[in-house]
Design a protein around this nucleic acid. Structure first.
Length: 581
DNA sequence: GCCGTTTTCGGCCCGACTGTTTTCAGTCG
């Protein structure tokens, strides 16, 4: 039996079709059409079957009769005959190479034709042996970059991004909840601790029947390819699609200890074991003991309480001082999703977003927010449709008119301005002065030296109209390293100038990293959580930003967009020169 | 292949810059 096909599987099929066609030398516009259909499928706000049934998929921009037919085939049969035909014609290894930064179609073709290389291992060997560097238009540097690209691809195959893992876990728990005898399911491990990258999905089943019986019923679930038992409490599920999840079964009386153990992290558990010992307890085999006496722990709170600790939120369990804080009763009152009053960093159809200002505003209002900060790209971002000063004025008029109609909800005028090489923003002060707030981001020249890049950011923070540094390190998870920065200098300057640092909530970025956000907090810098939404669906990204903020021990008062709209605008404008002096 | 219509084809996001190499593929949003 095949695993239920979800929209990500379908999007991947469409994207791979595009890649094969690209390598075949197919018309660029045809390739692009498949890529945009993949994006359209991936961005669906509902399960793919529902979107087919209610006709919303067929109406989506980028989906036509041809791609619709492919979607149908993939959903009903689990495969695409077009993709299978293409696999016969183009070695799949060449498609894998497209994922390497610095390798495009032209170079891959050259490598294939001249060296006969058609797989990543072959490519790696060719790079190491100097055969690659000897090709025309290649060199030593290119070969090195390709080796690095292969290494990071390998890392990427071991991890999944948090939003993907979260979605997989939700599907799985829905199925597991149906099993007879299961009284509770809880996602644990990296997903529960909201790690930005997840190595393994782990789920605890609290059951009032023996584990063996649960496992027998597990095997009957649709989509399970294989059950690989490791011991009597733990089983690894393998799905037809190649992914896997670990299932841990426990009884209600010991659920607290098992949940704690399975949630981790290793560092937290080690420190907890030391703490338990100092209190005359021991942690053995995912249970709590006092001498030879088994202590029942029906939930985690019971377990922490027995050890004289306040309950530690899962996000904080990283061994970064949370046990001392819990013992002292000084755990922070972490920011929660409901604390966020405004959505910042949103792109509209005026630059590269998919929805209008009004659509975003209504969606934000429906989601319970009080204001929306519109920040389209600036004029340097030509491809992304950056706004020139005239368009900024047009947008302001649109927003003013919209605000008159929106009862009790406010759209704020902002911009995501490019921070240029010299640290200046790409608008004059008179343009910036007409806005409610300004985000500055680096979108070019990522390879400057640490010294120059740091100077670029520090100098940008001297601009009195700048309020927020967007995605401060420029990283893309598993795809692009952060640019080099003296972060201590950046955090100190942010604290001194009152410029906030963004936790960009796009699950591909999550930048600032939570470890760095904790350092920024200690340095006294303000933080904002930015959706970086390019459409209505992207507004929901803020939850990942909240996750990262919580991991950084942040409370609501340290996050600028927990302020009301009026307070936020006052906060943004406090840096500006006063009129007339 | 999709879109939009000035309905059945023509147009489809740019362009400055980079690195490596020596004329261009890849990058960035």
């Amino acid at each position: 039996m095949t695993r239920t096909v979800d929209r990500r599987d379908v999007a991947e099929v469409l994207d791979r079709i595009a890649s094969f066609m690209e390598l075949q030398g197919e018309q660029p516009f045809r390739v692009r059409a498949f890529r945009s259909s993949a994006r359209a499928v991936d961005a669906l706000p509902k399960p793919i079957q529902d979107a087919i049934d209610d006709g919303s998929l067929a109406r989506s921009k980028g989906i036509g009769p041809s791609t619709m037919q492919i979607v149908h085939e993939v959903v009903t049969t689990g495969h695409s005959s077009l993709l299978e035909d293409l696999r016969e014609q183009v070695p799949p290894g060449l498609v894998d190479m497209l994922a390497i930064s610095g390798l495009g179609v032209a170079k891959i073709r050259m490598i294939h034709e001249r060296l006969g290389v058609d797989s990543l291992p072959d490519l790696e060997a060719a790079a190491r042996e100097g055969r690659l560097a000897a090709l025309p238009r290649f060199g030593k540097k290119t070969a090195e970059n390709i080796l690095q690209g292969i290494a990071s691809l390998r890392r990427a195959s071991e991890y999944r991004l948090l939003h993907h893992a979260t979605e997989e876990a939700r599907h799985l728990t829905t199925a597991l909840n149906q099993l007879p005898g299961v009284v509770q399911t809880q996602v644990v491990g990296d997903v529960r601790r909201r790690m930005e990258l997840v190595q393994e999905l782990v789920i605890v089943l609290v059951a009032d029947v023996p584990p063996a019986e649960v496992f027998r019923r597990l095997a009957d679930l649709p989509g399970i390819h294989e059950l690989a038992g490791t011991d009597e409490r733990v089983v690894t599920l393998r799905f037809a699609g190649g992914s896997s999840a670990q299932i841990i079964v426990t009884t209600p009386v010991n659920a607290g200890a098992v949940l704690l153990e399975a949630t981790g992290s290793r560092a937290h558990l080690d420190q907890l074991a030391d703490h338990a010992q100092s209190k005359g307890f021991a942690l053995h085999g995912a249970a709590l003991w006092r001498g030879s006496e088994f202590i029942t722990t029906p939930d985690e709170a019971t377990m922490y309480r027995a050890l004289g600790l306040d309950t530690i939120p899962a996000e904080l369990r990283e061994g970064h001082g949370e046990i001392e804080a819990a013992a002292a009763g000084s755990l922070p009152d972490l920011v929660q999703a409901g604390d966020l009053k405004g959505l910042l960093h949103c792109h509209t159809t005026m630059s590269d977003g998919a929805n209008t200002i009004e659509q975003l505003a209504l969606a934000a209002r429906d989601a319970g927010f009080q204001y929306l900060g519109v920040t389209d790209h600036s004029q340097s971002a030509t491809l992304a449709g950056g706004l020139d000063p005239d368009l900024i004025r047009d947008q302001a008029e649109t927003i003013d008119a919209l605000n008159e109609r929106l009862d009790g909800f406010l759209v704020l005028k902002g911009i995501e301005a490019d921070i240029l090489v010299d640290g200046s923003l790409d608008y004059e002060s008179d343009v910036l002065a007409g806005l409610d707030f300004v985000i500055g981001s680096i979108h070019s020249r990522f390879n400057m030296s640490r010294e120059h890049m740091t100077g670029r950011l520090l100098s940008a923070m001297d601009n009195p109209y700048l309020n927020i540094i967007g995605h401060p390190t420029g990283r893309l998870l598993m795809a692009r390293n952060p640019y080099p920065l003296d972060l201590d200098a950046v955090f100190a300057k942010a604290a001194a100038t009152g410029v906030a640092l963004e936790i960009n909530a796009d699950p591909h970025r999550l930048d600032l990293d939570w470890r760095l956000a904790a350092r920024a907090r200690e340095a006294g810098a303000d933080i904002t959580i930015g959706a970086d939404a390019h459409g209505v669906a992207g507004l929901a990204n803020v939850r990942f930003g909240i996750d990262m903020a919580r991991k950084a021990w942040l409370t609501a008062e340290r996050i600028a967009n927990t302020k009301s709209a009026t307070e936020f605008v006052a906060w943004a404008k406090r840096r500006r020169p006063r009129a007339g002096g």
